[in-house]
Design a protein around this nucleic acid. Sequence first.
DNA 1: TCCAATTACTACTACTAGGTAGAATTTAAA
DNA 2: TTTAAATTCTACCTAGTAGTAGTAATTGGA
Lengths: 137, 137
Amino acid sequence: MKLNNTSQYAIRILAYIADHKEKKLLSAAELSTALVIPYKFLTKIMTELVKADFIKSIRGREGGFKLQKSASEIKVDDILNVFNDSIKEEECILGIGFCNGMCKCALHDQWMEPKLLMQKIFQESSLEDIAGRGCKI
Amino acid sequence: MKLNNTSQYAIRILAYIADHKEKKLLSAAELSTALVIPYKFLTKIMTELVKADFIKSIRGREGGFKLQKSASEIKVDDILNVFNDSIKEEECILGIGFCNGMCKCALHDQWMEPKLLMQKIFQESSLEDIAGRGCKI
DNA sequence: TCCAATTACTACTACTAGGTAGAATTTAAA
DNA sequence: TTTAAATTCTACCTAGTAGTAGTAATTGGA
Ligand code: SF4
Ligand code: SF4
């Protein structure tokens, strides 16, 4: 019951970039060191984040990464979606099938509360929220 | 963000057994057919459930499985623990480290609410609750 | 006693997530 | 123009989860 590793890395990477927008560009080496994420794995994730259009990459010497959109436009849920890790409406905790509202298991009603809360948190929290407050990660 | 397959199977198996206590014993073949779980995989899970002392097995001809404890004594969380799938107090959604109450990320306070709710549901829901109500699975 | 129905054990395969290695490509600075 | 610093691409390795295969052990009933 947790987000997968890659999603967690991605959130931390993007939050870190959002938190350092005074710097024009951040290199993969810099991010890898600061966030303690294996360099080679980080570069792989970066490529996916570029393809997902969250960040822009500048290749070559003095290159690096920066946000492509404003931090408030990127929601946690958007990030999770890239790594197939968001909370799907139709997926069920007990894996019995699809929630059709007709046939409910005994845990259904109880389960909807935390499920909706998590969806809400993910959908409404933007990078700006994460980057601007709390301890830096 | 979901329970792993084996946990889901285990919950359904135990709920089914609890729901059919009028039968003395249920065989692996019967469970496999009723719950549409691959026979060989099911027998593997059964062995773990026996070792975890949730069910008792009777070997040999006319053998099968039955609950070892009363359905109200077996909580969902106990089942999840066997398959290393419960929500750990010290594990964090963002995977930054340990929640020490000193240093909190921006999502921490929001996250505690669904986390505690889920823990509560798992810890307080017993097989009896699941088996007695809702659609049969 | 023997057989067939049953669980238990051991070992394997398939798939996926996480991570690594090395080379190709791009680009600014020297 | 050359070089070094950077991203990108392709291919692989590793560990864990899901699932399969075959056989051994147990036991009630014919
Ligand atoms: S009714 Fe229960 S098993 Fe079915 S989708 Fe809802 S929570 Fe899952
Ligand atoms: S403060 Fe945030 S990152 Fe740290 S344990 Fe709590 S939810 Fe996780």
